[in-house]
Design a protein around this nucleic acid. Sequence first.
DNA 1: ACTAGCCCCTGGGAGC
DNA 2: TGCTCCCAGGGGCTAG
Length: 307
Amino acid sequence: MPELPEVQTTVNGLNTYAKGLTITDVWTDYASIKYAGKDQIKNSVYFKRFKKEVTGAKIIKAERRAKNILIELSTGKTILIHMKMTGHILYGKYSQLKTSKGNWVATEPGALRDDPFNRFIHFVLSLSNGNHLALSDMRKFAKVSLLPTDSLFESSDLAGIGPEPLNDVFTEKILIERLAIKPNGQIKTVLMNQCVLAGIGNIYSDEILWASSVHPLSVVSNLKPAQVKLMWKQIKIILVKGINFGGDSMSDYRNLDGKPGEFQMNHEAYRRTGKLCRRKGCSGTIHRLKIGGRSAHFCSRHQILIK
DNA sequence: ACTAGCCCCTGGGAGC
DNA sequence: TGCTCCCAGGGGCTAG
């Protein structure tokens, strides 16, 4: 699932490959696509506007805010992409099949073309150098919008999002302040709340809590100062680790080259149900719980629930 | 204020 | 082999 490290990896790739290029065409088969924040139907007047405004625009740069990709254009507009569950952006040469569905396929050999997870293409930007940016999205949950750059952060997609945990100004004090917003919430849910902190999802919250010896059901106000301090350190350490490993491809995340990241090889908790805890000196087992419709993985021995 | 449940969606795996 | 059922879950939404 694309969380902060995966989205950052994608954004870095966009700046490497697509920065400075001009968009020459747009294609999508998503049922809906947003123009100026309004959810609209494909091929409606709004998609035509989207296409008209994007075609001919130069890509100034790509940025990340929480799990959103922001592609700033020379026209004063920004393309916002949220990859949700199974979305990832690929860069390479594509061609559109002359079939009724008109699917796009990578024409180059290698991961881009051969990896099944790279074949669910639902949105394509053609670029001035003959290459394409293609959004592969197996479950079709991703959202694409076009918004005015000057009021981008006031849009409903971005307004109210909490601080970026990898920003230098994200101090221990800030974490304490942010957690204080949800004193009665369960820490796992609160960490994943984008209004509290930006960019943390199910995988990284499990790993952060494991490394901080905090039980996912712990109520925020019951956490000890030492635990919060450790969580603050681990949030930064684990997210940076995620970026350094090129993201997490336990499921279907791929980078712009179509290749998986390697953070999934370093999971201590996530999807290790029934396996031995690898913490030094701990002989516990990883358990699974359903919290807020998501599965939480934790060691029942060293992640103690404080009441 | 907070939580559970549902929805969107679809491939993969388990069970029969 | 092939069918059915369940699972994965970000985030928006409603109901309790």
